[in-house]
Design a protein around this nucleic acid. Structure first.
Lengths: 251, 251
DNA sequence: TTATTAAACGTTATATTGACATTTAATAAT
DNA sequence: ATTATTAAATGTCAATATAACGTTTAATAA
């Protein structure tokens, strides 16, 4: 594999910190900048991750996050949106910057900085469209195969951040359809935090938030009795509710 | 000002996403990658921010965060540590990645990605050493002057993240000396969250955490009676205590 | 009509929280 | 020596939130 060294990088050790502020940034080191997407999905039962199977060398046939390079006049988030669209065909997906990975040897081909974003999508909305060429596949979070480079670490960090954020803001609703049931919601929390939750306490707290609006219809698919649909009252992000204590363990 | 366009960037619109996985990353776009540091300090009374006055064109005499470019074989965090050391002479500073800023026009000179880190340091430990050349200055957080580029936004984001993190982990102790007093600690929380706190409730909660170890000596500098010193018992980060409800407003 | 299944609902004891005032330890002033 | 001053340190109680726990209900299947 051929390592491409950037011609315009003529860094020397005498370089001063203040060089940034010389006229222009000539002779500074330019690096490859990639974006990788950790795409979470929920189908009403399992929390899943979308990964792609590399069809091309190098690391052919290994699993990977969806990623790509940032273009010259493209913002980071724009790049992430573009990549998500190319993979899923979806617009307006919940997208949040996770972290940037920049250890110098993280990519064996060439030194690359990767800005990781995580996305939350309702799996049922996603219908594999143009994207057979990416060999995309949903895996249950627990069964995700080993990924290339530092992508495993990215996924761990993404879960950690997801838990973190979901404890403070109601972002998990991004994983659900407009209408969802309480059991679906509860299982989602159980999946995200990898724990069982006491149903009665869960309902008490979630209703105390005042976020949910009960619908007349029921979802009959999951049980004989059926479960009432709810929808989110306030716009998904405005609600400032503490979800921290939503999890009281089931016994 | 001369805009330096990277010679090795020969991106075309026909470029495929999967190009990342061709043999090597030839002809991909390389970008400038900078690191900027949001440096918080506390002197026992005020939460402060360290900024530098640009001595050189362009944007001469404007205030700025401390930053620099990432070098070819240098990790992102290594770059941040190097910059921090060059400015403060300090090693082993608490450093956390904040976010990466990559809107394509954020830097008027040349398209630059900036990875922002925030640092927490005990001001009294910091003695301006080699660094007169940077014209560094501590400002009370409320009085920080306007900064260049998107640095104001970075500072706002850093405060937001600091509050966020401090609500879950005891990171604010990084801003204090080894031995500190309860009043110092309380004022620190008040500064970070920009609110007054009820002293009795604060003490109850902070002692309930079991983190603090009371010392025999008192700090006599602040009052006639003096305030007992405490130190942090457990290593600063291991403690997993919920600091969320540490703030009950004073009336 | 009965059995089955998952959804929906309620109570109580305990722990946590917010609101609120007084006492204490040291120094400074008389 | 006594008193004044200042900030530190401490305690109580009512209200709220929490965790733990079992029973009833609505629908379908047998």
């Amino acid at each position: 594999m051929n390592v491409v060294l950037n011609k315009s990088c003529t860094f020397t050790d005498q370089q001063q910190l203040s060089e940034e502020f010389m006229t222009g940034y000539a002779d500074q080191c330019h690096l490859l900048v990639a974006v990788d997407c950790i795409i979470f999905g929920y189908d009403g039962e399992k929390l899943k991750l979308l990964v792609i199977k590399r069809a091309i060398e190098p690391v052919k046939d290994r699993w990977s996050l969806m990623g790509g390079f940032v273009r010259q006049d493209e913002g980071l988030e724009d790049a992430a949106k573009r990549i998500l669209f190319e993979l899923t065909g979806l617009h307006d997906i919940y997208l949040e910057q996770l972290a940037t990975y920049g250890v110098s040897d993280r990519d064996p081909i060439e030194r690359t900085i990767s800005v990781a974003y995580f996305a939350l999508i309702d799996i049922n909305k996603y219908r594999q469209q143009i994207n057979d060429k990416f060999h995309a596949e949903w895996y249950n979070l627990k069964d995700v195969p080993q990924l290339i480079f530092d992508h495993d670490q990215m996924v761990r960090d993404a879960i950690s951040k997801l838990r973190y954020r979901a404890a403070i803001e109601p972002i998990l609703f991004e994983l659900l359809p407009k209408k969802f049931t309480i059991p679906q919601l509860q299982v989602l929390y159980e999946e995200v935090y990898d724990t069982r939750v006491d149903n009665r306490n869960f309902v008490r707290k979630i209703t105390a938030s005042g976020l949910l609006i009960k619908q007349d219809q029921k979802d009959k698919s999951g049980s004989k009795k059926g479960a009432f649909y709810f929808k989110l009252g306030k716009p998904r992000h405005t609600a400032q509710f503490q979800f921290i204590n939503l999890l009281s363990k089931a016994h």
